[in-house]
């Protein structure tokens, strides 16, 4: 265990734990767009920047991305010092210039009092902030269907060769975890389309509601040892099934006790 001070309060952290995770555990609101608990930190969005110092640093302090900074003993952290807030405002300002139409970015910037960017607005800009959550999550899911392509200002998230990704199973992990809801997909009847690839949706054998894509179900049943039939029943019907089972158990228990 390591003792650190965050905003004047002592906190305990596990050795090797990243600052952001301690900060989040203390329910201190530090913004972060590229952070996701399921994947390794990347430090791409720069918003989780905090000020750190130690008593022996003679008044010197430095600014670090808390998602990538492992705790050190006796660290003194300020998450909302004037300078930190100023840094965050500058970053928000830049984000606003690049993604003026993203409601998520605007809301976050507003919280820091940035209502209008002071830079030139990129009119044809999209809402992708290149945080890489989608690609890292896709890797964590084991599909590796999409990646960050190109570099510099031409960088984008794209499937290989910009064609429908052969390894995508339509699980939607990328789209649902995108901090700016940039990744488009559509669910129509029994078809799902994402990354220009069309998927067949499985229908619940009991109520007919769609569950997950056939590819995703096949992947899960093959690699996670779950019977394929499990995915042919929707969540609501699974729950109904569970309550019936629980009812039966209660009846047996009662029977056994009497």
């Amino acid at each position: 265990m390591v003792n650190i001070t965050i905003n004047g309060k002592t906190a305990q952290a596990k050795e090797g734990e990243m600052l952001l995770s301690v900060i989040r555990r203390l329910k201190i609101d530090v913004p972060a767009l590229c952070h996701h608990e399921a994947v390794e930190p990347l430090g791409a969005c720069r918003l989780c920047m905090v000020e750190i110092t130690k008593t022996e640093w003679d008044g010197w302090s430095k600014f670090v991305t808390s998602c990538l900074y492992p705790v050190e003993p006796d660290l003194i952290v300020s998450t909302h010092s004037d300078q930190v807030n100023e840094i965050r405002r500058t970053i928000m300002d830049l984000y606003l210039a690049r993604h003026p139409n993203s409601p998520e970015i605007r809301k976050l910037a507003e919280e820091y009092g940035v209502l209008k960017t002071s830079y030139e607005v990129q009119v044809d800009g999209d809402n992708c902030i290149l945080c890489g959550i989608c690609t890292r999550i896709c890797d964590a899911m084991g599909f590796h269907a999409i990646s960050l392509v190109g570099r510099g200002h031409g960088k984008t998230v794209a499937p290989p060769l910009n064609e429908a990704p052969p390894d995508c199973t339509g699980c939607l992990s990328c789209a649902l975890n995108c901090p700016t809801n940039f990744i488009e997909f559509s669910d129509q009847d029994d078809k799902r389309t994402i990354w220009n690839k069309e998927f067949e949706m499985l229908a619940c054998v009991k109520c007919g509601a769609t569950t997950i894509t056939r590819e995703f179900a096949e992947h899960l049943s093959k690699n996670r040892d779950i019977p394929f039939e499990y995915f042919e029943t929707c969540d609501s019907c699974h729950r109904k099934e569970t309550s019936l089972t629980m009812g039966r158990i209660a009846a047996w228990t009662k029977e056994a006790q009497s």
């Binding site: 690609t135 590796h144 269907a145 990646s147 960050l148 392509v149 499937p159 290989p160 990704p165 390894d167």
Partner: peptide, 10 residues
């Protein structure tokens, strides 16, 4: 993964 090869080649 093809996506990684594509990322590096671009």
């Amino acid at each position: 993964p093809l996506s990684k090869v594509f990322a590096i080649s671009t």
